[in-house]
Simulated assay, not measured.
Amino acid sequence: MGYIYPGRPIANLVFKALTISTQSHALSFFSEFKLAHYMKIAPRSMFVAQVTGTTISSIVSVAASWWLLSAVENICVLEKLPKGSPWTCPGMTVTYDNSVIWGVVGPMRIYYPDGVYSKLLYFFLIGGIAPLLIWALSKYFPEKKWIKSINIPNILGGASVLLIARAVNYWSWITVGVLFTVIIYNKYKDWWTKYNYVLANGLDLGVAFQSLLTSATLQINGDMITR
């Protein structure tokens, strides 16, 4: 969209909302269907649960946003907020930065033809050739069964979801990954088969519930709410 409408940040935001967000939600739906398959949940029941949850979360998110905008004085305005206020809206800052980078500056000045990062576009070619290379190696060395297990989309896609944070977050991610996908998988495969995905979703739900509980009990108080 930055190439089609250069210098138009709003058009870029709308395009992102209608394409990238929709794609990410669709991929999440598919991953949940895979989990339901392992747990022997009927696809129709899973789809109903997904649609119901999405509908409820959308309504709650919009309602909570409107309530906060009307209840918290100077929300998202860093210059007028008191020191230490949690209502700085970091997500809004990221969205604004994206609209400036891809809508105002534009990919022409970042990548091709005038950008200093134009060589990064070669990775599109690398991403297309790498799976073919793995396939060719598996045919040339049929006795090496492990070559077929190399999945380039998973390797590159997994790197895209790494935390944008400090080194301690990476070590936590690596520790949990090695523990459950190497040690427990090899030594306690029956437990891993039965409970690994359930535990993963339980941890995600725990983080979401704890965030909601923390916001409701610690971050919202009389000093922050004006009416």
Rank of each mutant, 00 (worst) to 15 (best):
76 C>T: 04
76 C>K: 00
77 V>T: 04
77 V>L: 05
79 E>L: 08
79 E>Y: 02
80 K>Y: 06
80 K>P: 01
82 P>I: 04
83 K>T: 15
83 K>N: 08
84 G>Q: 02
84 G>C: 09
87 W>P: 01
87 W>L: 02
88 T>N: 04
89 C>L: 03
93 T>Q: 11
93 T>P: 00
94 V>L: 05
95 T>K: 01
95 T>L: 11
96 Y>V: 14
97 D>P: 00
97 D>R: 14
97 D>Q: 10
98 N>K: 11
99 S>F: 09
103 G>I: 05
103 G>T: 05
103 G>K: 01
103 G>H: 11
106 G>N: 06
106 G>L: 02
108 M>Q: 08
111 Y>K: 03
111 Y>H: 08
113 P>L: 09
113 P>R: 06
114 D>S: 15
114 D>H: 14
115 G>K: 06
118 S>Y: 12
119 K>N: 06
119 K>S: 06
122 Y>R: 12
123 F>N: 10
127 G>D: 09
128 G>S: 02
128 G>D: 04
128 G>N: 03
130 A>R: 05
133 L>R: 01
136 A>T: 03
141 F>Q: 14
143 E>D: 08
146 W>I: 03
146 W>L: 07
149 S>N: 11
150 I>M: 05
151 N>P: 08
153 P>F: 02
154 N>S: 09
154 N>V: 07
156 L>T: 09
156 L>F: 14
157 G>T: 02
157 G>Q: 07
158 G>Q: 02
159 A>N: 00
161 V>M: 09
164 I>L: 15
164 I>A: 13
166 R>Q: 03
167 A>G: 00
168 V>M: 02
169 N>C: 15
170 Y>G: 08
173 W>L: 12
173 W>M: 15
176 V>F: 13
177 G>L: 10
179 L>A: 15
180 F>I: 15
182 V>P: 02
182 V>H: 06
183 I>Q: 07
183 I>N: 10
185 Y>P: 00
186 N>D: 13
191 W>N: 06
192 W>H: 15
199 L>Y: 03
199 L>N: 01
203 L>C: 15
203 L>T: 12
204 D>L: 15
213 L>I: 08
213 L>G: 00
216 A>C: 07
219 Q>E: 04
219 Q>D: 03
219 Q>M: 03
220 I>F: 12
